[in-house]
Design a protein around this nucleic acid. Sequence first.
DNA 1: TCTGTATTTAGCTATTTCGCTAAATAGCTA
DNA 2: TAGCTATTTAGCGAAATAGCTAAATACAGA
Lengths: 96, 96
Amino acid sequence: MAATVYKALADPTRRRILQLLRERDMTAGELAVHFESSKPTLSRHFSVLSNADLIQGTRDGNRIIYRLNVTVLEEALLTMMNMFSIEIVGGDKNEQ
Amino acid sequence: MAATVYKALADPTRRRILQLLRERDMTAGELAVHFESSKPTLSRHFSVLSNADLIQGTRDGNRIIYRLNVTVLEEALLTMMNMFSIEIVGGDKNEQ
DNA sequence: TCTGTATTTAGCTATTTCGCTAAATAGCTA
DNA sequence: TAGCTATTTAGCGAAATAGCTAAATACAGA
């Protein structure tokens, strides 16, 4: 896993973006509705996530649709679990 | 989970510290042997990890022994898994 | 109390990060 | 092409981060 992934996950706005994309693909504008930051600021967050390969954007005419790279996120977390030799049993949901 | 945990995990030196402490408790000096950074620099890394409650230091005479808070680290990673609705099956070991 | 060892705190610098506004780019429709 | 919408890029400032050296603190032993 690239080191960029950890940095990408370190920011609360970016974690929230990933959570939103977990539910469905969204355009930059749709995502922006959920935040108070300016669009340029969010755009840079997108690019950080994109560089970490956690999300991927495809242009659709006027807009850019972002989707979560689920497997990359999964592998990143599993790698961390292994890195620290954490064993798993079960689990619930939600939290920030 | 506190936001400080994510920041703490974002630095490679600090991840390595956690890995080393996963194997056994170590003094600041013992840990320092594994790195090229100066001791003051490492000391600040210890305090970042400590503020995130990921490690705990106890004075033993001259030295300070650091130990990993395994459960805190475990819960942090599980919280992330849940945050992103990641399901788990099995797993191997190691990687950085 | 003096000396030595272990560690942290203080203070500095360089780099990175995050936020903003303004401007540029990309694509649509008329 | 002109005008509109969506998004990114450029450029700036403030704050955070990580590194260093020097100095301070804490403890042990003579």
